[in-house]
Nucleic acid binder design. Sequence first.
DNA 1: TATGAATGAGGCTTCATTCAT
DNA 2: CATGAATGAAGCCTCATTCAT
Lengths: 192, 192, 192, 192
Amino acid sequence: MNRRTAEESKESIIEAAVKVFSEKGYSQTTIREVAREAGISVGGVYIYFKNKEGLYATLLKYLLKDFTDRTKETIKDMSDPADALYAFIAMNLKYARRYKGIIITEGRDRGFKSCLDVKKRFFKKQRKLIEDIIKTGMTSGKFKECNVKTAAMVIIGILRGFVFSLLIDSTALYSSGDCSNIILNGLLRRKE
Amino acid sequence: MNRRTAEESKESIIEAAVKVFSEKGYSQTTIREVAREAGISVGGVYIYFKNKEGLYATLLKYLLKDFTDRTKETIKDMSDPADALYAFIAMNLKYARRYKGIIITEGRDRGFKSCLDVKKRFFKKQRKLIEDIIKTGMTSGKFKECNVKTAAMVIIGILRGFVFSLLIDSTALYSSGDCSNIILNGLLRRKE
Amino acid sequence: MNRRTAEESKESIIEAAVKVFSEKGYSQTTIREVAREAGISVGGVYIYFKNKEGLYATLLKYLLKDFTDRTKETIKDMSDPADALYAFIAMNLKYARRYKGIIITEGRDRGFKSCLDVKKRFFKKQRKLIEDIIKTGMTSGKFKECNVKTAAMVIIGILRGFVFSLLIDSTALYSSGDCSNIILNGLLRRKE
Amino acid sequence: MNRRTAEESKESIIEAAVKVFSEKGYSQTTIREVAREAGISVGGVYIYFKNKEGLYATLLKYLLKDFTDRTKETIKDMSDPADALYAFIAMNLKYARRYKGIIITEGRDRGFKSCLDVKKRFFKKQRKLIEDIIKTGMTSGKFKECNVKTAAMVIIGILRGFVFSLLIDSTALYSSGDCSNIILNGLLRRKE
DNA sequence: TATGAATGAGGCTTCATTCAT
DNA sequence: CATGAATGAAGCCTCATTCAT
C-alpha cells in the first residue's frame, strides 16, 4: 500500500512537522494535520514518535542541528570577524524567517523538559560561535575590549528579537546589513 | 450577592487575565482559571467579553497602553538621549520579565486580527519613542548619523529578544546596562 | 435545559455507572454509554468525576457501603448464628446477581489503587461480620471449634465464587439454602 | 529466517498468550505483546489465529484441557474420597494462582460465545470429577447423604472464589488444607 | 448582572487488523 | 510462512461557549 521505507516515512513526518509546527506553533498544530501533510495516517505517526511532545523534540533536534552545522560551515573559513559576524547574522535571519513558529515557541513548551534541553544546548552552541568571533575580533584588535559573554548574549537577543518581530509584521524588517552595522558600530558618534 | 459594580468586575477580570495569560500563554490559559482568579463565575466573563479572543485583545490594549504611558512619563524630562535610551531599555526589560507570556505570544494569535492590530499599534508607538530619542541624539551631535528607522527597529528587536531569552533561561541574563552599552557603542574599536 | 440539581445529576451518573459497569465490566464500559444512560453529555460526567477511574472508585464506595449497611441491618437482631450466616449468604448472593460485573472485576483494575483500597476495606468489613457470627456460634456451642479467620475467608471465597459462576452460567445456580447447608454441615458423615 | 515449523510457531504463540493473558487479563493484553513474547511478528499471530478472540479461545481450550488431564491423572488412583477431594482442591488452588488472569475473566469475554462454550464444557468436566468423588464417598459411607450436584457446585464456587480473592489480596490466603477441612466437616458441631 | 451546570466538538492516543513486500 | 508498517475506528478527556435559573 505504501512504498516508503520506514526511514522515509519517519523523515516525511519530520518534514511535515517542521512545516506545520513552524506555521502554527505547538498548541495549534494537530497530529492529524501533520499526518495529512506527511501522507500517512494518524496512527502512523505514533509508530515513529511516542507522542506529540516526542515528535516536537525530535524535530527540534533535527532542525537545530542542521542549522548549527550549516552555520559552522559558513563561518569556518572567514578571517575577518566582522564578516563572520555578518554571515552569522544573515544565516540566523534567514532561518528565522523560515522556522519562526518553531524558534519562537509558546508558553506550553516551557513544560517540556525534553524540548527545553534541546533548545538550551542549541543556544549554548550558538553563543559559543559568537563568542569565538568576538574573541578573534578582540585579539586581532578589530573589536574593542568588552565582556565577551555579555556581548554574545546581547547579539543572540537581537536575533531572537528579529524572529519575534517577524511574527508580528511578517513583512521584511531590517536587513542583515542594517542589523550588523548597528551591532558593530553602535549608535554613539566616535569622538575621532 | 456580588457587590462589585460592572466596571469593577470587568477590571478584576482583566487583571486576572493579565496574570494568567502572562504565566501560561494564550493556549494554556483557560477561561475557567481566569474566572477563578478574578473571583467571578465562568459565565460572568462572557458578560463582559465576547470570547477568549476578545478578552485577550482587551487585555493587550490595557497592558500596552499602560506600558506606553509609563514609558513616556519616565522619558519625558530626560535631556540626554543616551540616558533616555537607557531608561527606555530598562523599562522594557522590567516589563518583559513580568509579562513575558503576553509579550511573546504563540502561533495562534497570529490568527487574531484584533490582537495583531493592537500589537502593531503598540510597536509603532514604541518605535516612535525610540526614533525620537535617536533623532534628538543625532541633532545634538551625541549620536552619529544613521538610518533612524532601522536603528529603532533593531533596538526593538533586541528588546524582544530579551523577552524570548527569558522564556528559555529564566535566570537573569544581561542587564540593562550591558545591553545599552553595546547598543550605544557597538563592537568595533574606535579608530580614535 | 436541564432541570436537575447538581446532586441529582451526580446521582444519576452513579446509578447509570452502576448499571453499565455491572453489565459490561470496567474495560468494556465507555464513558459515552454511562453518559447516555444518565441522560447527560460526555463532558457532563467530567464535571462530577475526575476520570473513568474516579467514577468507578466512587461507584464502588457507594455500592459497597450500601451493601455493608444493609447486611449489618439484616443480621443485627439474629440470635442464632446459623440463621445469621444463612442471611449473610443470602444477602451476598442476591447482591452478586445484581452487580456481578462490579464485584468481579477484571485485570486492569488491579492497577487502580483507589479501587483496590475500597475493595480491600469492604472485604475486611465483610470478613469481620462473618468472624463475629462464627465466634458467636462457637461461644454458644453451636459451632465447633475452628480457626475463625480461616473459616471466614473460606466462606467469603465461596461467595465470591458464586458471583464468578454467575458470569459463566448466568442461570440460577445453587440456592442460598444449599450453600449454607454445606458450609454448616460439611460433607463428612457424622460418626454419631 | 525463522527455523520454527508451523506447529512450533503456533505453540509458542499459545504459550506466550497464556503468560500474557494470565498476567493482564483479556482487555489489557495486546496482540503486539503476545507476539513479542512469542518471538514472532504481529502479522504472524494472524496466520495462526483468526483474531484476538480466536487466540483466546484456543488458549483456553489448551489450558483447560491440560488442567483437566492433570487433575484426572492425579486423582485416578486415590481410593479415599477425602484424599481425592483434597488433591482436587490443591490442584485447583495451584493452577488458580498461576493463571488467575485467565480463570477470572473480565466482562468482555461474556460476549465471546466461543470462549463461553469452552469454559462451560470445562466446568462441566470439573463438576463431573467432583461429583464422582462425592458419590464414591457417599457409597463408601464416608460422606453423608447430600445432593451431589449442588455439593459439587458449591465446591467449585469455593475454588473460584479463591482465585478471585487472589486478585485482591495476592498474598497467601487459606491453604488447601484449611479449605478442605471446612468443606469436609462444616462449621456445626457434631452432636456426637 | 451573575451563576455554574451542561454541551459537544475536537484533540491525543491506542490497538486490532490488514497487506505489500 | 513471515514481517512490520500502515490503517482507522474508537476511547478518554478538555474546554470555549451557552443558557436556564
